[in-house]
Amino acid sequence: MRNVNFLALIGRMVLAFLRHAGRLSIFTVTAVSHCFRPPFFLRNVGRQMIEIGYYSLPVVGLTAIFSGMVLALQSHTGFARFSAEGAVATVVVLSMTRELGPVLAGLMVAGRIGASMAAEIGTMRVTEQIDALTTLETNPYKYLVAPRLWAATLMLPVLVLVADIIGVFGGYLVGTYKLGFNAGSYIRRTLDYLEVMDVASGLVKAAVFGFLIALIGCYNGYMSRGGAQGVGQATRNAVVGASILILTSNYIITELFFSR
């Protein structure tokens, strides 16, 4: 009997997973198709771009500068063990552009923007504002979801580019003021081994992360049910879901770009 119960539990979990996967797939296809069909709510796109791009700058900038600084410090003390301190500048710039810039910015934005999208759309759902949109002849996918997908996909690469620069600058500060590198040679070593592909791959990652953050945030908000608790649950699922998807897709994209 206990075995049967156990199997039933597994079965329920599988079914619940499939149900969510199915719903998310349908939501994704519907949302993306509305991204390319008029009418476009440009005012909403603009508002979201400012929210995502401009207002996330402080938090992403702070994350980036301290990551760059700690990276320089760690690689210096680590590399000193086999007398490779000279590689600090290169390690900082490659780590920032390829990995830390996009992933850290992605995770910070998932917490900041993904959560607020889920909470806002979730509240609109439970207070019937989404139904009201429909009765006013406005498709909620076009009005709410598509602008957020566009804005996040377009703005995350910009944010990551800024994060890359600030991160490298953080490494430079520690390198020159604390570790005693010559400023000119630090900058030269930063640029010497940097290839376009390093930065470009990071920006592609950023665009994918932006899309995923907005998608998961909107999805969880859109599907939320049952008042304050439902909205709270949607917000949590949005952050956790987006973070996991960011880390998973990060590996996949890295594999696509660099494993030859």
Partner: peptide
Amino acid sequence: FQSAALFD
């Protein structure tokens, strides 16, 4: 709507 459902 019952709750007015205004866009806040």
